Simulated scan of single mutants.
Amino acid sequence: MGAADTLTAWPHAKHSRFVDVRPHHWHVQELGQGDSILLLHGASGSTHSWRDVMTNLARDYHVIAIDLPGHGQTRLGSRHRSSLPLMAQDVQSLIDHEGWALKAILAHSAGAALGLRILQGSHLDIPLIAVNPALTPFKGFAGVLFPIAARVIALSPVMAKMIKRRMAGPGQVVSMMETTGSKISPEGLNLYAKLFRSDAHLDGTLLMMAQWKLDGLVSDLPRIDVPCTFLVGENDKAVPPSSVRDSAKKMPKAKTISFEGYGHLLHEEAPDLVAGQLRDALRKYT
């Protein structure tokens, strides 16, 4: 996926712009006016996953969606800054550079861990609304082997190409989406297919998986007093709903709201529902 895709065929392409804030070349989309809401996608995602949520929220808010480092159209400036603490620092640098006065963060999956670290580091007293937040590491052998495998693949061009061919194969995107427990539109499937054909996106995703560690965040949860609302799709096959509830119980200001029949990509399956939950959270908080 090149720049032409973003400018012509990518959702909200006319609202795209690019910002150089060291060390990355960031892709940013902004819609609407009012209080600023920052949207953070999860690992292997991009701004496209928020496309319908953005349209809804832009009626009342200044909505900001970014591609995380190495994802979508954001070009990595360093291959050594894809860990949780360093990515949080780099996103905060972007926020400071742009002068965004945020009123809330809306995040998905791994983006929720990132949002927590950003708010914890900045001491901003604003809420985090998270869709199926991934706040705990894999357990058992997977917790050890998965990061190692991702690191090996990220460092091996040959293996990365093999993974890319597999992900871009006919029907593969449909199979991968089924592992999320979500049913998304043909448009959504096509956008993921385009995304997974990008060498740079695949490389960025693998680097994030290889460097991402959540142990420190898990130990900090009882001390993180960020007001949080966790939206849980009970059919999520990627992040166990029970793990989200367990994380919320450890936090002083977190609550969960469950939705039957939805999976990991709840925000793509039911964008108006997610937008409504953000509005409710902000009303209650303010």
Rank of each mutant, 00 (worst) to 15 (best):
S93F: 01
K103Y: 01
M176P: 00
G181T: 09
K249W: 01
T256C: 15
L7A: 10
F146H: 02
A248W: 08
S219V: 11
L191W: 05
I126S: 03
E234I: 08
V28M: 08
D272L: 10
K237I: 01
Y192W: 13
L273W: 07
D60I: 00
G263D: 14
V53F: 08
P186F: 05
M1G: 09
A275I: 11
L128V: 11
D90A: 05
A65C: 13
A110T: 15
T286D: 08
P11H: 06
H97P: 00
M159Y: 02
S36T: 15
Y61R: 12
S247K: 02
H12L: 14
E178N: 12
E234S: 11
P227R: 14
A9N: 11
L265V: 06
Q73K: 13
M177V: 15
P240E: 12
D5Y: 13
P147F: 06
M54L: 10
T74R: 08
H62W: 00
L206S: 02
L221E: 10
D215E: 15
N190A: 15
I95A: 01
F146C: 10
L116I: 07
A150T: 04
V226N: 03
F230C: 14
R283H: 14
P271I: 09
L128D: 12
A104H: 06
F141H: 04
T205M: 15
F196N: 06
G181N: 04
G263E: 07
K253Y: 10
R165L: 06
A65I: 09
G32R: 14
S242M: 10
W50I: 07
S83I: 11
V91H: 08
P170M: 05
D60T: 10
A238D: 13
L207A: 05
L273K: 09
R81T: 12
M176Y: 03
S242H: 10
F196G: 01
P133R: 11
M162F: 05
L124M: 14
Q29R: 15
A107I: 07
A9G: 11
H123D: 09
T6F: 14
S156W: 02
Q92Y: 06
M54S: 14
L207K: 15
G204D: 02
D67G: 06
T179A: 12
P137M: 02
A104W: 02
G233T: 08
T205Q: 13
A107H: 02
T256D: 01
L106G: 02
L206K: 05
D203Y: 12
V158N: 00
L39R: 03
A107Y: 06
M176C: 02
P240Q: 13
S93M: 07
G70F: 02
A210D: 11
L231P: 02
I224C: 09
G111V: 09
A43K: 00
S219T: 14
G111F: 05
A3R: 15
W50F: 15
G115M: 04
L207P: 04
G34F: 04
W100Y: 05
R279H: 13
M1V: 11
G121M: 04
A160R: 15
I129Y: 00
V232C: 10
H12A: 11
L214A: 05
L84T: 08
M167C: 00
Q73T: 02
K250Q: 15
M209V: 13
H97W: 06
Q277T: 03
K253S: 06
Q29C: 04
R151P: 01
